[in-house]
Simulated scan of single mutants.
Amino acid sequence: MDLQHRTRATSSSRLTARRVWWRLHRDLGLSVGLVFVLLGLSGSLLVFYPRLDLWLNPQLQVAPQPGPEQSYQQMLETVQKAYPQCGGSWQLELPLRAEDRAYTARCRRTAAAMSGEFAPQMVTVNPYTLQVLGNRQWGQTVMSWIYDLHLTLLLGTTGTLLLGGIGLLLCLSLVSGFYLWWPRQLAFAKALHFKRGAAAARRNYDLHKLAGVCGLAFTLMLTVTGALLATPQWFKPTIDALSPLARMPMLHSAPAAGRAMLDADTVAGLARAAFPDAELRWLDTPEDAQGVYSLRLWQRGEPSRRFPKTFVWLDAYSGALLATRDARQRSAGDALFAWLHPLHNGEVLGLAGRWLILLAGVLPLPMYVTGFIRWRQKCRAARGR
């Protein structure tokens, strides 16, 4: 009798736990599932957003041409004339692909940016002719609008905080779905079977579970990395306590009477000398008379070529090396944050990785639709009892 009683108690406890997990999965799916769909579809578009932006704006493309490109300094002077309202630093991004040689510089001190938004002015220039090909503001182009939708829900800082919380809830939803799917007695073949000849309700359920289980590794990775990217301030104190994170140095140039700032090309040469095998990716001009040059370089082995984590800071007048950050010599915590973005957009696995993330971003749509249909089926069944 005691054995039977314990067996019944265990069975009842499991049933109660399953009901709790099912209700959690249902309520989270219905409440934040639609946001998951929005984030997934917008994220799929953003996987290739630089190329899609060029496809939408073909006038910004510059094919390689014979002869040398103009200097970085000349390009910066060109964009400064195109957007004289910028009173601060310009951030010059070097071309990422050999087949497209256009350079784009960003001015972050815009009217919208001064109110706390990320809304730089983006000026694209032909490096051979110095012709200005585009003068656009972030958020007013199709792809940058989609980017803001994905990152903030178009709600600014409030949106990023919401997305951080929603990301954690989505993680719980995915884990609860996996728990509910986990087969008893490890009958995985049966649990992964799709019954083609079954009733519509059963086929809908099979589609829901297969979309969730087969894509779980990718959707869970996207939600975790997305939450960390949206609200790093929630996680950095804990990570910093376990593995100290690098701090941005507070640096200043030393202006001298009669000495002008060094030009961008000289500074680029000094940065390359500090990391001879690295590829220069970004060059930031000084913010003001006491500002410094900040240069960002990519070293082989870094997960993101577009947004690498190797930095060089130089005095704007003397060219003195003020500080460096070598991405190959970083803490585990810094390595974690360096991998977040290339994991989130698939860059870490090259073109194949980007296509995998694009497909993973589509998965929340069938998961939500089939889940919603199953909920409606259960509601109708409950009313019929």
Results as ranks from 00 to 15, higher is better:
residue 279 E to K: 13
residue 245 L to T: 05
residue 252 H to D: 13
residue 248 M to V: 13
residue 268 A to W: 10
residue 244 P to E: 03
residue 281 R to S: 10
residue 253 S to T: 03
residue 265 D to F: 06
residue 265 D to V: 09
residue 268 A to Q: 02
residue 258 G to D: 00
residue 275 F to Y: 15
residue 272 R to S: 10
residue 264 A to G: 02
residue 256 A to H: 08
residue 253 S to H: 02
residue 274 A to C: 04
residue 247 R to M: 06
residue 280 L to K: 05
residue 245 L to M: 10
residue 258 G to N: 02
residue 271 A to E: 09
residue 279 E to L: 13
residue 272 R to M: 14
residue 251 L to D: 07
residue 266 T to V: 11
residue 258 G to T: 04
residue 263 D to S: 11
residue 249 P to R: 01
residue 256 A to T: 14
residue 274 A to T: 14
residue 247 R to Y: 00
residue 253 S to D: 06
residue 263 D to C: 06
residue 257 A to C: 06
residue 263 D to H: 01
residue 276 P to K: 11
residue 260 A to R: 15
residue 250 M to W: 05
residue 254 A to T: 14
residue 249 P to D: 09
residue 261 M to E: 14
residue 266 T to E: 12
residue 267 V to W: 04
residue 267 V to P: 02
residue 247 R to S: 12
residue 268 A to E: 09
residue 280 L to H: 09
residue 267 V to N: 02
residue 272 R to N: 12
residue 260 A to Q: 14
residue 249 P to F: 07
residue 244 P to T: 03
residue 259 R to Q: 15
residue 274 A to D: 07
residue 263 D to M: 05
residue 253 S to I: 07
residue 277 D to G: 01
residue 280 L to G: 08
residue 269 G to H: 03
residue 279 E to S: 12
residue 270 L to K: 15
residue 261 M to G: 09
residue 251 L to K: 03
residue 248 M to P: 00
residue 250 M to Q: 14
residue 260 A to P: 14
residue 252 H to Y: 10
residue 255 P to H: 02
residue 262 L to M: 12
residue 283 L to V: 14
